[in-house]
């Protein structure tokens, strides 16, 4: 399968990339690892006229601590996130989520900024960002802004990011030693989650239970009110209306959400 024709520009800097985005509007797409975009282009589900390659920009990569937050550059690859001692210590759930993406080859190429921008509701990192209460930093022609995870994912493969904006970094609260749980149910190695659950510090996020990664707010409330993990998990699917596909119907997904939430709350690491 061959993508439709496009022009390719290797951006020399973030501001160069922003200038190109402003010039080409929504005919352009940013390319980093390409592991969400290129498969869509090969299927011709996406046919951008211009690809702006930011994959080589060192200024957008890297992991650091800033006060109470861990800051991860947008082009940081999943394998580097998963292997980082800093991330494993400060936000172990994030390192684990990165280690669960796809397979080793995919983790060598895919980037956190790409995965979040793609906003697949079944994916690991969007769910992790919601569970962690993180945020993304966006840079646009009029400056930069920050959006929290709960507001960033707006629909099925849709985010609050505008076509002329660039996701530069991801920010998550440091939480060394805070217990966390992560459950991902797949039928085959390297599949997307049929349902996923990430739980940490009283927050519970669900993957593939709706058009975006979701908070299991009813279960969170029950937990905060003193319910046991098993009792709280009974509310994990409240208010959700997950999609149906070849892997699972709606009722099965709702059942899985409860089982996996109980496991995520009962079997915590950290």
């Amino acid at each position: 399968m061959i993508p439709a024709q496009f022009d390719y520009v290797a951006a020399e800097s973030a501001s160069h990339a922003l200038g190109l985005l402003a010039e080409h509007g929504d005919e352009a797409k940013l390319l980093a690892g390409g592991h969400s975009l290129l498969p869509m282009m090969k299927l011709r589900l996406a046919q951008p006229k211009v690809l702006i390659d930011i994959g080589g920009l060192a200024e957008l990569a890297g992991i650091s601590v800033d006060g109470d937050d861990l800051v991860v550059g947008a082009t940081t690859r999943h394998a580097d996130l998963a292997a980082s001692d800093l991330v494993r210590h400060e936000v172990p759930l994030l390192a684990h989520a990165a280690s669960q993406v796809g397979d080793p080859q995919i983790r060598h190429r895919g980037t956190i900024g790409g995965s979040l921008s793609h906003a697949d509701p079944a994916a690991d990192l969007p769910m992790a960002l919601v569970a962690l209460g993180g945020s993304v930093e966006l840079q646009g022609p009029d400056g930069s802004r920050s959006i929290g995870a709960d507001d960033f994912f707006t629909g099925f493969f849709e985010t609050a990011m505008r076509p002329d904006e660039l996701l530069t970094a991801v920010r998550v609260p440091r939480q060394p030693g805070v217990p966390w749980g992560y459950q991902k149910f797949v039928r085959r190695a390297n599949d997307w989650a049929i349902v996923g659950v990430a739980a940490v510090d009283g927050r519970i996020a669900l993957a593939n239970m709706g058009p975006t990664p979701l908070r299991a707010t009813a279960a969170e409330k029950a937990l905060a009110g003193g319910a046991s993990p098993a009792q709280a998990a009974q509310h994990a699917a409240d208010g959700t209306s997950p999609g149906e596909d070849i892997h699972a119907d709606r009722e099965y997904r709702r059942h899985l959400a409860k089982v996996l939430t109980r496991r995520a709350l009962e079997h915590q690491a950290g």
Partner: peptide
């Protein structure tokens, strides 16, 4: 690619 395994059906030659 630079010593790390990648799936070359999902990498552009220009990359």
């Amino acid at each position: 690619l630079d010593g790390k395994s990648v799936k070359s059906c999902t990498v552009l030659a220009v990359q």
